[in-house]
Amino acid sequence: MNDLRDLYQEVIFDHNRSPRNFGMLEHPTHQAHGVNPLCGDELTVSLVLDKGGVIEDLLFEGRGCAISTASASIMTEILKGLSVPEADRYFDAFHAMATGQTPSQTDLPALTKLEVLSGVRDYPARVKCATLAWHTVRSALRNASASVTTE
């Protein structure tokens, strides 16, 4: 039996109630829009990549369930200040975690922060909620302006 508490941990409620880095940057270098058509979740990620390829600022805005909102909020906290290759490694680690695999990127310092979301692995219908923000930010980093869907 899945314990609901593994999915809805206190940290999730906290980020859902008061999402960090919420809003839109006025002059982003990169931006992407992500939607999960099945549940109507949508969010926009805007970021500034500095000349050295480091994510200088990162905001998200949109509406979604507690899982997708918390995931986006936690993601912005982790990725700010990281280089694109570092961000990619977090993406891969989180993707592994959410789909029930063990991430190989064990050296990542903020990996434990992501663990609060690993409960989604027992809820296949909710994995897309948790990964939407990550797919969107990856898409923004790859193409300066893009639109993604988790369907």
């Binding site: 899945n2 609901l4 999915l7 809805y8 058509p37 099945l38 549940c39 109507g40 979740d41 509406r63 979604g64 369930c65 507690a66 899982i67 809820y123 219908a125 909710r126 909620c129």
Partner: peptide, 29 residues
């Protein structure tokens, strides 16, 4: 203040099966 998707998951945890989403009626939403 609670997204329907969260409602659906929590209801399911106690065996209550409902539909959450746009019900294939996005203009209604």
């Amino acid at each position: 203040g609670i997204h329907p998707h969260d409602v659906g998951t929590i209801l399911d945890s106690v065996g209550v099966a409902i539909r959450t989403g746009h019900h294939c009626a996005m203009p209604v939403m």
